[in-house]
């Protein structure tokens, strides 16, 4: 068996493979450029356990948005029974403050530590305010705790 026109085909294949896999190796190169984990927020606790927030925060935000805007349902009962106002203000109240090291003074900056790294653009802050209101405290509501309801 013999490959005709190998001098054209082999470089062509190489170019094709390089182009087709370009997103992967380009992405890998960007990922290895280093990643700063988001700063620790102010406030003593998060709404749900840290691991839940890591994997579910986006679903929580979508669910909260629809609940507030479309269903006028504004209280979130966390799995441990604590009650929170469904609002981005609740997040910003802690994540919109500077941490002990003074990093990320706004919630938008905290979010963009990850989202920027993953090249995912956020447009939340086009409308929502990324700063906690002066003198704002944790947005946890009283009374609590009661029977928990769970994630989202």
């Amino acid at each position: 068996m013999r490959l005709y026109n190998a001098q054209y085909i082999l470089p062509g294949l190489a170019i094709f493979l390089a182009a087709a896999t370009f997103p992967f190796w380009r992405g890998a190169a960007a990922r290895s450029a280093g990643f700063r984990s988001p700063p620790n927020p102010a406030g003593e606790r998060c709404i749900e356990p840290k691991q839940v927030m890591r994997t579910e925060h986006m679903r929580m935000l979508v669910r909260w948005r629809d609940a507030v805007v479309r269903e006028d349902s504004r209280t979130y009962v966390a799995s441990d029974g604590t009650r929170w106002e469904r609002s981005l203000r609740t997040c910003v109240a802690c994540h919109g403050h500077a941490d002990a090291q003074g990093r990320s003074t706004t919630a938008a900056a905290a979010c963009s530590e990850c989202h920027g790294h993953m090249d995912a653009s956020l447009d939340c802050w086009d409308c929502h305010h990324e700063f906690a209101a002066p003198g704002s405290r944790s947005a946890r509501l009283e009374p609590g705790p009661a029977a928990g309801r769970g994630p989202l």
Partner: peptide, 10 residues
């Protein structure tokens, strides 16, 4: 650029 790789992976 990472967006490209994410799209490709998706």
């Amino acid at each position: 650029m990472l967006k490209l790789s994410l799209l490709a992976a998706a």
